[in-house]
Design a protein around this nucleic acid. Structure first.
Lengths: 155, 155
DNA sequence: ACGAGATCGTTGACGGCTCATCTATTCCCC
DNA sequence: GGGGAATAGATGAGCCGTCAACGATCTCGT
């Protein structure tokens, strides 16, 4: 007895389903809109935003990866693609022969500065405007609770 | 005056950030866990689940796509991959020479039946168990509100 | 000073997603 | 019944993400 039930209750399933549906629809629309507006992927945006805001336009590779919570492999591929398109550049690191600095190029700055206000406008239009400040606070609290809970769980 | 502000308020930004972080972490962990447990992608899972639950194991291609709200191109690629791995098969449609039925193979049934309880267990462990039923209801209501709001917005 | 192990980052293979374009059929209206 | 528009679905290019394996450099104990 007290076995974990095999399925979710209808109420639990309803919550899960609507969360998943909302999240997929919202992320999908924002991603497509970002691409249409700015010819940038969500990954490009996040990397440039973190690099310029939190790193002053210049960060060690792994610090950059940590700042957006990505695995190094993902960041490595991403930086390679962005370097090819001229959004960032790699600079040698004098203190550590293995390492690199990733630098936002002028084109990278231009790209993020043009994209950011448009992106924020869509976030507002599709998400923020749908909810009251109280609902936003509640969602933040719930999200934080799930995050904290996950941190305590293995994998 | 009354111009739309360029950025979000700190409270709005906090809500947005924690939602995004939660959603990415949660989806990422569930996806990886599904692959480890069942050698299946989230897409495989969704398609097989919809096909077997809502379609009795046999559905017209576009009905299947609509049932999971995917574009036909995405579904076409997905079905091609799944067919190659033997999870589904295509059957000709007598009523419409352009169309196909997508059928879950025995291997497909086996795969979803093995994967589903494991997946649900992770959803419970990482998400449902983090929240009270009241919080789940609140999240469902908020998600629904965002969805409804998005439906009224162009693109 | 040297070797084991840790750390920094890259690479290749593979599957997944989007967009644009294409073919084959069916519908419908004259 | 013939021709144009709509519909069903496939295809190819290009980017993105994961996993596993790898080479290069650094660190630290002895």
């Amino acid at each position: 007895m007290n076995a974990t039930p095999r399925w979710l209750t209808p109420e639990q399933k309803a919550a899960w389903d609507s969360f998943i549906r909302m999240q997929e629809t919202l992320i999908g629309r924002l991603t497509r809109q970002l691409h249409v507006d700015s010819r940038m992927s969500a990954s490009d945006f996040i990397v440039l935003a973190s690099l310029t805001e939190r790193g002053g336009g210049r960060m060690r590779f792994l610090d950059l990866a940590k700042s957006v919570e990505w695995e190094k492999s993902r960041m490595s591929h991403q930086v390679a693609r962005m370097a090819k398109r001229g959004l960032v550049a790699r600079e040698e690191c004098p203190d550590d022969g293995r390492g690199w600095f990733i630098v936002a190029t002028p084109a990278g700055y231009r790209a993020i500065e043009e994209a950011a206000p448009l992106h924020v406008a869509h976030v507002r239009r599709l998400f923020v405007d749908a909810l009251s400040q109280e609902e936003l606070d509640t969602l933040a609290r719930i999200s934080q609770r799930v995050l904290t809970h996950m941190e305590q769980q293995p994998d």
